[in-house]
Design a binder for these strands. Structure first.
Lengths: 326, 326
DNA sequence: AACTTGATTGGAAACGTTTGCGGAATCCTT
DNA sequence: AAGGATTCCGCAAACGTTTCCAATCAAGTT
């Protein structure tokens, strides 16, 4: 049998109410009895039954995390951030992988609703209407903004701007852009930034359209790029960039001499490439941490909503160089 | 306010006991009233309070998952498998990332103990004694065996054997082996298999010792290999293999012409390498699925323990070839 | 017709906490 | 020394289920 607060109460010669107060540290208990209770609790190896506590308080000490794909290194790092900060806050996390299917995200929200205090939701692709229809619980959106909603995002627009400025400074004037899935919020942000910055810099951009955010998408993007006069390729993310590099190598196009390549996200993949990939650094770990902090604020009824925007940074490595003289 | 079983009972004109029976589908309820209750429940949007249910039944419908590092693609795939199968079984998963620190794994077990029905624990490095000391709950070990314990592992030994046979068939006679962290269970299995298969094949093996299971470890392994007459390098995992390939490229050693390289795990990384990496395919997704199934059996008191061993397979890609004539 | 059987249902006791309320003891104030 | 304020603690009522047990009723049996 497990030991309950009644056992501790009996052992310490007090009532269960006092045990509860001594342990939860809120009610008024004398220093002496508190010590006695704590000692007995420790001796008996008592820990309160979370279900009972939750039934009465309505708080579970658990937060839900919904991501489209756990195996995607991008989200894996986010989880790590969430996890670490949650540990500090004494919260456990209930995780739901939506297998890249928006419908499963909505299912997950429904299931989680009764089980958690709040939700952290990374949902690049569910549309706005459906998203807000499912927000019954305190929620922090990740890499996504919605009017009136708490969120933590990264400044992708600034990242793209830096890339463009940098490529321009290197001497590039014609670049290709491989976009990701059209519904993605961050993808739209990147696109917007592209359009707003290109004119001022006097760049010419060839938009290759949406390619799948996979290695195969990268292969495609490489071929599309070679059909343009572009001297640099800016890819939707690191995976696409790596796919492109692979195809370019096959085609005998050397990076960065013949073509510069820029990725996005600064995942571990960018270090695996040869040469190492120049990319937009997106703080994923920090985003996960920030989301937990914000959710905590949201749960403690602090004024909001707060929309935190994290900084991105251009990480210059080996795949960018001045264009070939031609 | 949330709607409770009392509300449904009132609406359907029955007692809460009947509501409970109609919904949980175990007690005896007439078909007519069951339909009525279900209809009212749906109309009111009722869903049972999990905390209350759990308090009385002692079951939470939640399983705990402990992994050393979520950002490691190896474990990410395992989680995905767990997640999917758990969804089928109507279970949610509580995940704990131990940040590669065995001490945090033990903390996680303690925290999870009161919150979940059972635990799936991937613990390559916690030592046997401490591991068994912390198994208070039904537990399935992942990629690890312990006497008397339920587990699902992969047949790493067979994988290594296939590699050796294959390299031998290609004409290699001298190979280098880069081992991983010494405490790792699967690492020991690989080592054992190496020792037991080498004599029969007449191979000479240079053991490079333990290298960190990282890109840097791979760089090291490459240099160590070049100091031997080995014509092939078998690495602890794909990351090490990729690190090695990178250093080899820098050194002007071409793979597979000058040196064959074999990885282990068949993570997505192995497809990113150029040329694509020959590697030992380890079923991670399936392992996650199997673990949930086993845990379910364990929880339903079926006879055990069951130790399921999944098959590995040699995935031959572009980094292995006959050795150079010399 | 009385008795047994089986199927449905409701009443009520759990499960283990937290917390409002009131009582008792102690302390300070005048 | 008496009154009020303060501190500390126990009683008991929740929280929302599940499930044991008994009650009711229809149907079948002798």
């Amino acid at each position: 049998m497990t030991t309950t607060s009644r056992d501790v109460a009996r052992a310490a010669g007090v009532s269960i109410a006092t045990v509860s107060r001594a342990l939860s540290d809120n009610g008024a208990v004398s220093e002496a009895t508190k010590r006695r209770v704590l000692a007995e609790a420790a001796r008996l190896g008592y820990s309160p039954n979370p279900a009972a506590r939750r039934l009465i308080t309505g708080r579970s000490g658990t937060i839900g995390l919904i991501v489209p794909d756990l195996a995607n290194p991008f989200f894996a790092d986010i989880i790590k951030g969430v996890q670490r900060r949650a540990r500090e806050y004494r919260q456990t996390i209930l995780v739901a992988d939506a297998d890249e299917q928006p419908r499963l995200e909505l299912d997950a929200v429904r299931n989680l609703t009764r089980q958690v205090d709040g939700i952290i939701w990374a949902s690049p692709r569910v549309d706005d209407a459906e998203l807000s229809a499912h927000l019954n619980l305190p929620t922090v959106l990740l890499h996504r903004e919605l009017p009136g909603q708490w969120s933590v995002t990264a400044d992708f627009g600034e990242g793209v701007r830096q890339v463009l400025v940098n490529l321009h400074a290197l001497g590039h004037r014609t670049i290709a852009y491989a976009g990701g899935p059209g519904q993605s919020w961050s993808g739209r942000k990147r696109q917007e930034s592209l359009h707003s910055n290109v004119p001022a810099l006097g760049l010419e951009v060839f938009e290759l359209g949406s390619v799948p955010p996979t290695i195969d998408g990268g292969l495609m993007a490489a071929d599309l790029t070679l059909a343009t006069p572009a001297t640099a390729l800016v890819a939707y993310n690191d995976v696409v960039a790596l796919g492109a590099m692979r195809r370019l190598a096959d085609r005998g196009v050397s990076v960065p001499q013949d073509l510069s390549v820029v990725g996005c996200d600064n995942t571990m993949l960018s270090l695996l490439a040869t040469p190492a990939l120049t990319t937009i650094g997106v703080p994923r770990f920090e985003a996960g941490e920030a989301a937990v902090t914000l959710l905590d604020q949201c749960l403690s009824e602090q004024p909001g909503p707060v929309c935190q925007v994290l900084r991105t940074s251009l990480v210059i490595r080996g795949t960018t160089a001045p264009p070939k003289e031609s």
